[in-house]
Design a protein around this nucleic acid. Structure first.
Lengths: 396, 396
DNA sequence: CCTACTTTCTTCGACTACAAAACGAAGTTC
DNA sequence: GAACTTCGTTTTGTAGTCGAAGAAAGTAGG
């Protein structure tokens, strides 16, 4: 079961928005929803009833009175895992199950060897999702509820660290995923599970996850994912902007000034990815004779104040800032946030910020938020869950 | 009368879309509209009637039969100027009146001295609009009709060669418009005329005009305006993307590699505008001792194959291409088109294209259209008219 | 000329989504 | 206990849209 049309719902006052207000705690009662959405009480009641009958919402007793009748509290069903999510990375994958509110029920990180090819990797990850779903609740107590009304799995979201055509679910000429080119992830997964599968780029999922949890009300945002590779996800008018081929946000091969310009796997030299990605930092340090094997080691060196590593981090920050400056001038977002493992490097962040302020129009930066993505390692699967839930709710 | 909310209508099957199909010739009858829009014939009839009663549409006799009843042809009222438009440039302004289809009824170019300040300049241009409106029809015959039903002026659109907050109509720290900073164009105009006035950046208007006339069905597009200054307009999801502060598309102060990096009026050096704008080319040639006074002279030199001028044009094209490459990777549009007076320089266009293909992801360029804006000197006022008409139709 | 068929457009009844208002339910306050 | 609040439902009305039926106006063929 594949998905080929994006959810063009999620509009003002739509069911998905009601659900989100309840999930976020912004609304607790029907009256709250009426106030927030601007819909009439009768319409809200009607919609809420529909959502309840679909098992997407439930009543949760009476709330405190505010001087009149007590509200009948609404809540998104919890305790049951309803969405599976896979956030595939270069060396690890984060796999989890989430509930309808987008909260993580269970999650774990698995080592992954991308080079084993798509079938093997995806099979293992899908199996892990199934295993997590089979366990009714997490290890944090709360066993009783058992199979809640919403306990059935509704869909699986998959994030891929390379260019994906979201519409078809196919991977297109990825840099660092030998054997995956042209592979149709959605079709493959659809053949193994009975529920809808949505596939998207990992940076897009991070963007969606971070946006929904931290700035759901802002219209335009750019989220940078700086880990082993570099990518970005774009929110335009409150929705993910995927562009014509679905490759929007792929800034990894934009050229930046660097001397000497390091060669990139794409055949060019001086690509952002060859200067500022985690993989690039590892390579560069190794070339300088520093004995590091992976990104973790690099980050440790930076945290320890190693001179070479810090200089490289600064250079990386400048490079990202350079590209981002163009993006900010062009797109004029309200937020730019950086996530991924490199986002925790202070020197990188600092020089990115500096470059951004130096190179952007004052008009574009005067109210711009420049942040670190705060949601931790589960942003990706959170975004995946949102994507799935959007689809499920839109489809009724 | 100011306008503070963007027309969020213009959706599938909306009145504005029906109107556009008729104006573009894609639909001639109610039946055509029903087929195109997917609406039922009854709904179309009803909407058409509403549009006719508003004077936005009219019946134009019977068409040819296709084997059955002859269609009652529909047409957008012509012959009467219903929208005024002003496209202000660095040294000239294009002023015109247009009909509801977005076709130019009358237009003329006036010399302008920006430095005279906003009141004086705008007063003169508004007076010119009034003069054009007063003349019932153009000089191309067709006098009879006189005051058509739609003859009343419905609004005025104004394009400004600098950053404008479209929502408020205020100008914000423009580079080349001394005395205009903070000026509220919309409020000023609203005080002089009785109709709605919409104000926007000139590149945005060019983008809208070009998009609506050449690629109305494409979702994502970027239009570069390269004249005395450099700007761009962004179409996202079929609509103008203005960004958080309304400064989206302002790429004039993005840094590009240039040696030596020419100083820019913004205080930085190496800005795109300081390398690739018409003003920059004039300055650079003058510094080389070539006796040119204005952009026209530069373009003539380039056309004549002057070595220095051509080299500069190539450099400018590379610089634009560099920035545009980031934009294309990031935004992944279906079209990139370049307009403005510099768009006619073959060397510039050629090196822009080359840079673009060299620096972009193959995925992003494989189906990308890279074009010249073909609509001539009236694109700007056409875009302005579309903006006004969008608003008028949305407002009922 | 008359019949059969097409295409175009309108009319009418039905359905849906939403809103406005009235009302019932459940509290609080004085 | 009366008055007032807040919450939610029920009822009624309205606007938008669709589908079916039919009227209008033609073509094609005998």
């Amino acid at each position: 079961m594949t998905i080929d049309d994006a959810p063009r719902d999620a509009l003002r006052g739509g069911p998905r928005e009601l659900l989100r207000w309840v999930a976020s705690g912004a609304a607790v009662s029907r009256a709250d929803l009426a106030r927030l959405s601007g819909l009439s009480p009768s319409t809200v009641s009607q919609r809420v009833e529909a959502l309840i009958s679909q098992g997407l919402l439930e009543e949760a007793g009476a709330g405190r009175s505010r001087g009149g009748r007590r509200p009948r509290q609404l809540a998104v069903p919890t305790g049951g895992a309803v969405v599976g999510a896979i956030d595939l990375g270069a060396h690890h994958a984060r796999v989890g199950t989430l509930d309808l509110s987008g909260r993580v029920v269970q999650a774990r990180t698995l080592p992954v060897r991308i080079e084993d090819g798509p079938e093997e990797v995806l099979d293992a990850l899908l199996a892990e999702v199934s295993a997590l779903v089979a366990v009714p609740t997490g290890p944090d107590g709360e066993a009783a509820d058992g199979e809640s009304a919403a306990g059935a799995l509704r869909g699986i979201g998959v994030g891929i660290p390379g260019p994906v055509q979201h519409a078809t679910g196919r991977i297109v000429s990825p840099s660092r995923m030998p054997g995956w080119n042209g592979f149709d992830v959605a079709a493959f997964c659809a053949g193994r599970v009975e529920v809808p599968v949505v596939v998207d780029n990992d940076a897009n999922l991070m963007a969606l996850g971070a946006h929904r949890t931290t700035h759901p009300d802002l219209d335009h945002a750019v989220y940078i994912k700086a880990g082993t590779g570099i990518g970005s996800g774009v929110i335009s008018d409150g929705r993910l902007h995927r562009g014509a081929q679905g490759s929007a946000g792929d800034i990894s091969h934009c050229r930046v000034v660097a001397d000497p310009a390091p060669p990139c796997s794409c055949g060019n030299a001086g690509c952002l990815e060859a200067v500022a990605s985690g993989a690039a930092l590892v390579t560069a340090l190794r070339d300088q004779g520093v004995p590091v094997t992976d990104l973790t080691g690099v980050i440790r060196l930076i945290d320890d104040g190693d001179r070479h590593a810090t200089a490289l981090a600064r250079q990386a920050g400048r490079a990202i800032g350079e590209i981002l400056a163009v993006v900010v001038n062009f797109f004029n977002p309200q937020v730019v946030a950086i996530g991924g493992r490199l986002a925790d490097c202070e020197p990188l962040l600092a020089s990115m910020r500096a470059t951004l302020y130096e190179r952007c129009l004052p008009l574009a930066t005067q109210t711009l938020l420049i942040e670190r993505v705060a949601t931790g390692q589960d942003v990706g699967i959170t975004g995946a869950a949102h994507l799935v839930i959007d689809h499920v709710v839109a489809a009724g």
